[in-house]
Design a protein around this nucleic acid. Structure first.
Length: 197
DNA sequence: CGTGTTTGACCGGCGC
DNA sequence: GCGCCGGTCAAACACG
């Protein structure tokens, strides 16, 4: 919580980057996002432009976004401990042996939007909501509903600028985007058909 | 009835 | 050791 001014500075930086990134699937500088799919974003193997810290190829903006996630608290909340935070409460799941995960890629971005829920093509199930300190808005916790997928995301509206929603993704989907596949299937079939000649 | 949300309780990490 | 706080669980609930 110390150094709030620093936080503010970086936040404003980030805001600029997020809204100007050409590859950010959520490049939503204005209210209306495409209700349907974001093709440009989803056609990447990494639908969110998640930044692998080890990857060199990432664009500058993405790297900076990742830095932001690593180094900042979002309203005093999001910490990036080196274990990637496996902790978190929850009853006896510890004994069940929830394996410590290596640090997972995290990616946060801001969108200027009225609705908190972004249609990113994946299905999410909300599993928690908490009021966080220094913020008048609660933080919502979502998990990908796909059985084998353990991707999570946090959504929180900024108290300083209520038109901005901060979304933090943790992990990478290990399955194709359902909506994308749904949309692509007829096209792929046609391609297969045509390629026989 | 299946799926997703709400919400209070619980847990672990961290600072003091 | 204690209290605060963020993250998660899971029962109850809502909705199609």
């Amino acid at each position: 919580m110390e150094g709030e001014t620093g936080t503010n500075n970086q936040f404003s930086n980030y805001s600029f980057m997020a809204s100007s990134s050409p590859c950010n699937p959520y490049n939503l500088s204005s209210q209306q996002q495409e209700p349907g799919l974001d093709w440009e974003g989803m056609l990447f193997s990494n639908p969110y432009g998640l930044v692998d810290p080890n990857a060199q190829q990432g664009q500058q903006q993405q790297q900076q976004q990742q830095q932001y996630v690593d180094s900042l608290d979002i309203n005093g909340g999001l910490r990036n401990d080196q274990e990637g935070h496996n902790s978190g409460g929850g009853k006896e799941k510890k004994s069940g042996g929830r394996v410590k995960k290596a640090s997972r890629p995290r990616f946060a971005f801001q969108t200027r939007t009225d609705n908190d829920i972004l249609d990113d093509g994946y299905r999410w199930r909300k599993y928690g909501q908490k009021a966080v300190k220094n913020s008048s808005y609660p933080r919502s916790y979502y998990r990908c509903t796909h059985h084998t997928c353990d991707v999570k995301k946090q959504v929180q509206r900024l108290s300083k600028d209520t038109s901005i929603v901060v979304t933090t993704y943790e992990g990478v989907h290990n399955h194709p985007c359902e909506k994308l596949m749904e949309a692509l299937t007829p096209i792929l079939k046609q391609i297969q058909f045509l390629s026989r000649f």
